[in-house]
Design a binder for these strands. Structure first.
Length: 261
DNA sequence: AATCAGACCAACCGCTATGCC
DNA sequence: TGGCATAGCGGTTGGTCTGAT
């Protein structure tokens, strides 16, 4: 990927180059570091003959030029490890990269943002839906245009109806499914029937409520000292939301303690 | 063949952490 | 203890590539 030399700017008496690195610049940096080592990024560019900032040199070296860097071809094992580490550590790219020899935080971050984020996010949604015990059958009626129409069918454990209440939840069974039009009970022993319709908004609202309930449960579990088992929960946010103060250290320490265990 | 949108990714930027005086 | 310099981290930008139309 080539980046044009965007803009250069005057830094006191010298012009600082920005944008993509040329082969010549790379060689200069490599040669200099081989000869003198890394002693000070800020003051290194000038004696190295580079019209770059120290920051730029450091980034180029760390992400591209230093030995044992591996580029591309992230293996399935590495991918699984990234997903697992991200689940545990969140956006701590440096910490994740430290556990993947030869990979840089920048590469992992890019890989996550461009590929894994969507995939994992989608998978999490499906897990949430699974947890919500809802089964969709999009082909019925006009439901093909429904936003959930593309979702796969999910196994359907039973939900106890909120009998008698105004917001009665339709009874679900192995032969039931829910669409935006309502819950359909497909029982061979009786005629197919539809429970009261539920709008898309109501359905989405219920999904979110159930999602948040699950999240609350998870947060509660964390603060009860049990093992965190899913989701990259931001500990600071958790503290804020729950009005709690993690008094024996920072929230991050807490998460890291869990990680160590 | 031309155009466009989305994916990809190197590099930049701003902020924080750390070390030294 | 405070201030400064430097290193490091994570979010964002923007140029190129690629596949769809």
């Amino acid at each position: 990927m080539v980046r044009h030399p965007l803009r250069s700017y005057k830094n006191s008496s010298t012009t600082v180059k920005k944008g993509n690195w040329s082969e010549e610049e790379d060689q200069k940096l490599i040669a200099y570091i081989r000869r003198y080592g890394i002693w000070n990024w800020t003051h290194m560019p000038k004696p190295a003959g580079l019209a770059r900032t120290g920051k730029s040199c450091r980034l180029r070296w760390m992400n591209y030029l230093r030995p044992n860097i591996r580029h591309g071809n992230i293996t399935k094992e590495e991918e699984d490890l990234i997903i697992e580490l991200h689940r545990l550590l969140g956006n701590k790219w440096a910490a994740i990269a430290a556990r993947l020899p030869g990979r840089t935080d920048n590469e992992i971050k890019n890989y996550w943002n461009s590929r894994l984020n969507k995939r994992v996010g989608c998978r999490n949604k499906l897990q949430i839906l699974t947890a919500c015990h809802i089964k969709f059958k999009p082909e019925h009626n006009n439901s093909s245009s429904h936003p959930y129409a593309s979702l796969p069918t999910i196994d359907t454990p039973k939900l106890e109806p909120d009998v008698g209440s105004q917001n009665e939840i339709p009874r679900m069974s192995e032969n039931s499914f829910c669409t935006s039009h309502g819950v359909h009970h497909d029982d061979k022993t009786s005629e197919s029937s539809w429970y009261s319709p539920c709008s898309v908004i109501e359905e989405e609202q219920r999904l979110w409520e159930q999602f948040l309930a699950l999240r609350d449960l998870e947060i509660e579990e964390i603060f009860c000292g049990t093992k965190m088992h899913s989701g990259a929960t931001d500990p600071d946010l958790v503290c804020m939301q729950q009005g709690l103060v993690y008094h024996s250290g920072t929230c991050e320490d807490f998460i890291m303690d869990l990680w160590e265990k």
